[in-house]
Simulated assay, not measured.
Amino acid sequence: MTRRPGQATIAAMRKLTLEQIETVILDFWQGSPLNSLHMQGGEKAWKQPHIAVAAASDPLFVEIKKMIGPFYWTPEEAFALGRPGLQASAEELSVISYVLPQTEATRSDQRAMNELPAERWARSRYHGEEFNCGLRSHLAGRLSAAGYPAVAPERLLDFDYRTSEKFGIASNWSERHVAFVAGHGTFGLSDGLITRFGKAVRFGSVVVKADLPVTSRMYGEDHQAWCLWYAKGKCGACVHRCPIDAIAKDVGHDKPACFKYIRGVTAPYVAKNFGLGDTPCGLCQVKIPCEAQIPSALQANG
């Protein structure tokens, strides 16, 4: 019998495999109507996703909580919130992180912009994130139905934004930090995560009660290894891409200034011109050496 798009199931097996997880994710990416920019021609919002896995017991999760603040969830805490009454230690949990790369057409349009986001980019931020939210829930649901209880922390009712004493505006679950721990990539000068597929990406994650093989973290615990500025003291292309000078080589990313520009300028712009209720900018993610890859000068480290 031919399987309908988006209906991949996990076979009943004694041990969950990465191949089964990849099948569920790729099937949903290929067949879900949510994966669309809602433009003429039916373009997908994202290129093919890629997954990585972290152990929930990785000490980096606790270190990140200490840095961001007590409101930040470890995987064990997020699982307990989503599965009250179901006990699971960090050693029993795995964290699946996936990366959604922007399409070449979206990146090309965005490269031509200097002050405001391109329409495709804005649509990927709005409709693409609708798909991302759907994928988070879909994956957690499929895993749970197959006997591997799972939660998508970003989809929990308690997910929100707080104020970190050290970092300012911060959520209680960070997809970028999870992706770093899982081996997807490291942070750049603009705070974006540089992956093998570049910085022009988005992330999602699911915490599951299953023993999965952990992805090798090629950069160890160096959270800035794949940024040319931090690794070699040169580049700073993202500095010049920011229309309001919210990125600086000596201090990094000015989050309040970035937030103000997005809320006050780019969000009203896309609402008026494209009818989208999102908060895009992303100019610092393109027209840079790490747009779609690890910078070539650092690829031996990846």
Rank of each mutant, 00 (worst) to 15 (best):
T2L: 13
R3Q: 15
A8D: 03
M13G: 13
K15I: 12
K15H: 15
L16Y: 07
L16Q: 04
S32V: 05
N35L: 10
L37K: 05
Q40A: 14
A55R: 10
V62C: 13
I68C: 02
F71G: 06
E77R: 08
S89K: 14
E92A: 15
Y98W: 15
Q102Y: 15
A105E: 13
T106H: 06
A112N: 11
A112E: 09
A118T: 03
E119D: 07
E119I: 03
W121M: 01
S124G: 11
S124L: 12
R142G: 10
A145P: 08
P149T: 01
E154H: 06
F159M: 08
R162A: 12
R176V: 09
V178Y: 00
V178A: 06
A182I: 12
G183E: 09
F197D: 09
R202G: 03
V206R: 06
V208K: 01
V214D: 13
S216V: 09
E221P: 03
K234M: 11
G236K: 02
A237G: 04
A237V: 00
Y261H: 14
T266F: 01
F274V: 03
L276D: 04
G277A: 15
D278C: 15
C284P: 00
V286N: 00
I288S: 02
E291D: 12
S296Y: 12
L298I: 02
Q299S: 08
